[in-house]
Design a protein around this nucleic acid. Structure first.
Length: 245
DNA sequence: AAAATTTGACCACA
DNA sequence: TGTGGTCAAATTTT
């Protein structure tokens, strides 16, 4: 169910209240978590940073809704299907909105979801980069990742990461489109990933950046040569945090 | 030395 | 034929 879809003028208020409530809860969580951590550790800094981004995000949602800003109609989480591909793509549904952004074949897996995030990291999985493309008309290149266990466990999951235009008004916030393809069938170190455990439907298993479990997600060595557009990767390289959270 | 990333080439689809 | 996704050799990092 999409709460935004059912929004009318009265519904906006409800959405705003929900987001505000979520914000308050995050604040509580923030107050609970941070004192536990070593304030000088990189981990605490990272968590602090993630909290700030969550707050900033919800703040934008609230102000956007309160202003009735129609230019930002696009929801944070977009679920759509892709046009058919060579192997196992769904061939029947094509949404008009997707015509102009990358409805090309996808060899290995069907599209699961798109996520817009400030930091396309720590979605709970380990990824290996296998390609980078300059997409025509796009300002930034697109990076292609597959599950780190694709080889050993045959996990078909892939994702693409592409920086969006900086269009938030002040031009300082970078957003990234993260598209997920295929379901994870892998287990890391014998532990089923929380996102997989939680999944009750295929779509529910989609990892979302903001629900980081940080069990083992790393971008090993990403951006070491300075990927111009995806240099964000090096900013978020942190050691395994799974033991301490 | 092994593992991971980069990057140009190739392939499939529209 | 152009565009986007993948492959794989070369390169870099650990």
């Amino acid at each position: 169910m999409n709460i935004l879809e059912s929004s009318n003028l009265g519904g906006y208020k409800e959405v705003i209240n929900e987001v505000k409530h979520q914000r308050a809860l995050m604040m509580d969580l923030h107050d609970l978590v941070l004192p536990i951590l070593d304030p000088h550790s990189g981990q605490a800094k990272l968590i602090q940073q993630l909290f700030e981004e969550v707050f900033s995000c919800s703040g934008k949602i609230i102000s956007s809704l309160e202003l009735g800003d129609n230019s930002e109609k696009q929801p944070i989480l977009i679920k759509h299907k892709r046009k058919g591909g060579k192997d196992n793509m769904e061939n029947h549904i094509l949404e008009e909105n997707n015509k102009d952004h990358g409805n090309k074949r996808r060899k290995n897996a069907k599209h699961i979801s798109s996520v817009v995030t400030h930091a396309p990291h720590f979605d709970g999985y380990q990824w290996r980069k296998y390609g980078q493309k300059w997409i025509s008309k796009a300002k930034h290149s697109r990076s292609y990742y597959r599950c780190a266990y694709s080889k050993e466990q045959g996990c078909p999951a892939t994702k693409t990461v592409q920086q969006k235009k900086e269009n938030d008004g002040n031009g300082t916030v970078r957003l990234f489109n993260v598209d997920y393809y295929g379901q994870h069938i892998c287990k890391s170190d014998g532990i089923v990933h929380p996102c997989v455990v939680e999944a009750t439907t295929p779509h529910d298993s989609v990892p979302i950046a903001s629900q980081n479990q940080s069990s083992s997600s790393t971008f090993v060595n990403a951006g070491a040569h300075g990927i111009q557009d995806e240099s964000f990767e090096s900013l978020f390289m942190v050691p395994d945090m799974s033991q301490n959270i």
